[in-house]
Design a protein around this nucleic acid. Structure first.
Lengths: 152, 152
DNA sequence: CTCCGGAAGTTCGTGACACGTACTACACTA
DNA sequence: TAGTGTAGTACGTGTCACGAACTTCCGGAG
């Protein structure tokens, strides 16, 4: 059968689904859901208050409560009361959550490397640069950690 | 604050989330869910049997039944018995489903055009070509229609 | 010091959507 | 005709999203 031709919208939407499926599959292989895996990524760098978590993940307060409840039940995160404000809780990773998040990210990274293995280095770097600029300019959710700005 | 540096995995995962959010928001503005919008896209070209729908959308038979039930209740699709095999149903779009699917895709297309408005044409074409090749090579779910192969 | 408005988070009810299991109706083959 | 397999549905379960209402706590004004 003839290979289909994809315009930019089709390419981006289908690529989005492909990457999303890789994340979901990798999460399932770690015994967690895609949402829990995202939570672990968001918490990777430092503890975050519940309200801020909801903002970062673009979900409501009640959804945040449920997601953190289930992650806590699974032993992946803990809630600590903020000493300065007893209304507020800080959510942080347990050792188990940190380790699982690490191996999850390694698995996703490996699968993405396989996905783009046939893309020449120059095109891959352009893909990286263009998508980076697009997600930064459009305030994409930070559901995968970034590195600090590196020297040129 | 310093702009973060994203490697290829971070860029792809965050871009995936961004595009997914555009689809979800556009679907909600049409009064449907993201899954229902995907269903309308899959059915856009021709009616599909239930079993094949599940395969195309990468969901189980029971999930397919539920999704089609809710879309049928919303007046977006109909089921027809296959004359050759009375076990089988073909699912097709209603006029309302076809129209809603069309305006949904136009809305997503417009938002994606805005997303990449600042990307130079040459880079945009390379992005399109690279992502197209990646999604075709990796059998991404066809949750957005393609055009038939066009003459060079 | 007291009171009020607002913040932080939880609870509850609801609905979508995913899965697996078991079932019914139907098709095909020996 | 009987046995095997297919197509789809019903049911139970769990996750995850939302909005409304609630409790606890904080900070500022009077």
């Amino acid at each position: 059968m003839a290979e289909p031709w994809l315009d930019i919208t089709a390419a981006l939407v289908r690529a989005s689904g492909l990457v999303s499926d890789i994340c979901a599959k990798s999460a399932a292989e770690h015994g967690v859901t895609a949402q829990q895996a995202q939570l672990l990524c968001v918490l990777e760098q430092h503890p975050v208050a519940m309200a801020e978590l909801g903002v970062l993940m673009r979900i409501t307060k009640s959804s945040t409560t449920g997601l953190v409840d289930r992650a806590q039940d699974a032993g992946l995160v803990v809630r600590d009361t903020d000493a300065d404000d007893r209304r507020s809780h800080l959510v942080s990773l347990t050792e188990r959550g940190r380790q699982l998040g690490g191996t999850y990210r390694a698995m996703v990274t490996g699968r993405i490397a396989t996905l783009i293995a046939d893309v020449p280095d120059a095109e891959r770097e352009l893909l990286r640069a263009v998508l980076s600029q697009v997600v930064i300019s459009n305030q994409a959710r930070a559901t995968w950690p970034a590195e600090p700005e590196r020297a040129a």
